[in-house]
Each structure stands twice: as structure tokens, then as C-alpha cells.
Design a protein around this nucleic acid. Structure first.
Lengths: 218, 218
DNA sequence: ATGTAGAGAGTGAGCAATCGCTCACTAAGG
DNA sequence: CCTTAGTGAGCGATTGCTCACTCTCTACAT
């Protein structure tokens, strides 16, 4: 947790420090990221840095949470975006594009966390972060079942797991060069992200939509 | 590429060095992995290490390719595992469990590669590695369409992208503590991997199976 | 057989650079 | 004059990599 001193400096300066840190950790990974560089890019001395944060890990956690908060805030309200659950899902995918555009570092740090063997971080954050997607998707599907858009005999747990897997890979495909190339391989060059979302929605309807959801039959 | 000297030492010793390197890179990540430690664990001197490999990056690439070769070999032959495309897909998921059991490091290094910003590595390997899953899945779906198991009006590209996303996340869930916890969140405790595969196949049939594929109606 | 010369595999102390972090210090505010 | 924010040179530990060296094996002349 950040030291008391950090909470006393102006919020814009706090944001600047966390933003710079987030970018550095995203670009170089936890171990290669350089605290001295972060301090100098944020316009503060290393001494001040260590007045604000106990150590490198502390700074990393603070920056990570800052990014997660942004992601959570962006998702806010999706469950009321429409009456149609499939449109709500589309909105979630569109929000991912927003996040990737506005704060790709947040996604990058998050993705690196998955791949790393930093088990202590993982245990601390897994539940908090994943809860976001899980809660919204579950809400959307259950409501969809009530309203007759979604088949009632699906295994909801497995379904939203499937969906969230795709949502995560979609998010990561926006920020990882490797996954971008992979996307091109699979979709054979045409990587208009809105079209990927269209196809996703079509597949979803096919997968768990009732006749009501289909609209004019394809 | 490894130096000529490396190719002249006994194959078992080559394998040992690459295996140790793979484990170290998997456990600590590229930057934190220590070449001196790798050398000593493999029972060779640092001097010898640098007679075998030009530098750290070279060793990393060799170890990565060694792991990828193992993954590719394990997939070998899945497209003839059954007549039913859904059983072929099940076989692919089961193979992932084999890989995760026998050589988790290979998957770990691969996963870390995605999350890192090592763009040069990414560009070099993305096509080679992804080609494996892509080729098999495409073959399975097209053959399935010919045999009447798979709907003919699906967008094959989008479909196998969707499928491979799930396959990747499934693989990563076997080796990342974070993703294991996430899986438990979504599937509410019951994380029998064979059951996850069963559900996956059910969802696949619903998603793109014809009546023939369904078997006795659910 | 024996001596010898050369190639090249293998060694490991240690150089050079990096980086997390400290601490003795100054400056400002009350 | 005390408290608190801020500074930055530099310490100590780590680590990628080098290089001067030894050891082993083969080839060939004696």
C-alpha cells in the first residue's frame, strides 16, 4: 500500500506517477522496468519515490490497481445498455476496444501478470479482477433467460466461461503483436474489429439464443 | 541459432541443457532467468554455455523451439483420431492436458511470450506456432462439413478462431495459478478438467453441429 | 611405440554495467 | 527550532559475458 505521503500530494501528480509506472511496467515487464527511469519520467526524484512507496512491488501493485480501476469503471453500466442480452455482450466487446485505445498499458500489465509466475500477486488479484467480467456476464445471461432471449437448458457457468475466454483473448489481441498476427492468420487478413464482434454475436446467438433472439432468420 | 559446438555434444546432454533452460525461463521469465544458474544446473560451465550459444537470447530461442517442437509432436495425428469432428476436438483438448502434465514449462514460456513486449520474438514465432492449431482445426471443421457433422453456413474462419481462443485459454488455465482460480470462479468449484471438456463439446455441438452430430437428442 | 604440435572443448575468476534502495542532507512551513 | 517533503550521490548485490588458460584428443613424423 502506498505511503501516507503519497496521498497528500496533488491528485494529478498521483495520477501522473501511476500512469508513468503503468506504462513502464507494461513496456518492460516487472523485472526489467526501472524505478529510476519511472521517477525521472514522472518528474520526481528517486528519493521522493521511496517516500511514496515502500518498494518496487508496492509501486507495481498501486499502478496495477489503478489500471484495474479504469477497466472496471469503463465496464460500469453495461448490464443496462440494452434489453437484448446480445447487444449487451456487443457493448462489452466495444468497451474492450475503448480500453485498448485509451489505456492499453492497463491491459498489458494485466496480461503479463497472467503469464508470470508471480503466484503471490496472482492469488491476491485473481478474484478481484475476474469478478468484474464474471458478475456482468452472469447477470446478462440470467436476465436474458428470464426475458426469453437465452435458452434455459444451457449450463450457465460453462457458457459464461466460454464467453469470457473469448472476451479476454479479444482484449489481448488488441495489445499483443503476437496475437494480432494470430488473428490475421485465422481471419485471413480481414481484421476489422467491429466485424470480429459481429461474427462473435452471430456465433453467440447460434450457441445459446432462442428463436426470439435470432430476429429475422439468417 | 545454436553454435556448431552444441550440435556435436551428445543428444542427451543437448536435451538436458534445453530442458533446464526451458524450466528456468518458465519459472523466472526471460529477464530474471539466470544463465549461470542454468549452466550449473545443467552441469556445464558458463564458459561452455557461451561456446554453445551466442548469448542469452540465442539460448532462449533454442529452448523455446525445443518446447514448441514437443507441443507440435503431441498434436501429431489428431485429425485422424476419429470420424466424428467433435471427438477430434475432444482429442485436441485431451492432448493439451498431456502437454500440461508432461511439459508445463513449454506452455509457460509460450504464454510469457504473448504477454511480453518482445516484438521481435513475436514476429518471428507467431506464424510458426499458431499454424499448428490453425491447420488442424481448419482441417477438422472442413472435413466435418463434408461428412455432414458440421453446419455448412458457418463462417469457418471466425469459428476456428473462437475455438482456438478457448483451446488456448484452456491450456493456460492448466499452468497459471491465476487462471486456475479464475476457472474455479466461473465453474463454481467443480474444476474436473474432463468435465470442462465435456461441456466444451456440448457447446460446440450446439454452436455448429448438425442433427447428425447431436446423436441422441439432449 | 614415442614425441610433438595443433585444434578445439571446457573452465571459472572477474570485469563492467545495471539497478533497487539508503541516508545524510537541504528547503520550506509553521 | 522542529517537522515534514524532497534530493541525489553512491553502496551493494546481481548478472551477462569475456578471456586467458588448461586439458584432451588426433595426426603425423620419428
Amino acid at each position: 500500500m502506498a505511503r501516507a505521503t503519497f496521498n497528500r500530494i496533488p491528485p494529478e501528480k498521483q495520477a501522473l506517477v501511476l500512469d508513468v509506472a503503468n506504462r513502464e511496467f507494461a513496456e518492460h515487464g516487472y523485472h526489467k522496468a526501472n524505478i529510476n527511469t519511472i521517477a525521472s519520467k514522472a518528474g520526481i526524484s528517486i528519493g521522493a519515490m521511496y517516500k511514496y512507496f515502500a518498494n518496487k512491488e508496492d509501486l507495481f501493485c498501486e499502478a496495477l490497481e489503478w489500471g484495474v480501476r479504469f477497466i472496471r469503471d469503463t465496464y460500469e453500466g453495461v448490464e443496462h445498455a440494452s434489453n437484448d442480452p446480445f447487444e449487451k455482450i456487443r457493448t462489452m466487446f466495444l468497451k474492450v476496444l475503448d480500453i485498448a485505445r485509451e489505456r492499453p498499458q492497463a491491459l498489458q500489465v494485466y496480461m503479463a501478470l497472467l503469464g508470470s509466475n508471480m503466484d503471490d500477486f496472482a492469488q491476491r488479484y485473481a478474484n478481484i479482477i475476474e469478478d468484474v467480467g464474471h458478475t456482468y456476464l452472469k447477470h446478462i445471461i440470467l436476465q436474458g433467460q428470464q426475458d426469453g432471449y437465452v435458452d434455459k437448458d444451457v449450463d450457465v457457468g460453462a457458457l459464461i466461461f466460454f464467453l469470457d475466454n473469448h472476451l479476454m483473448m479479444f482484449a489481448f489481441s488488441q495489445i499483443s503483436l503476437y496475437l494480432k498476427i494470430r488473428q490475421e492468420t485465422f481471419l485471413e487478413g480481414s481484421v476489422n474489429q467491429e466485424r470480429v464482434i459481429d461474427e462473435t454475436i452471430r456465433i453467440c446467438k447460434r450457441m445459446f439464443g432462442t428463436d426470439r433472439a435470432q430476429g429475422p432468420k439468417t
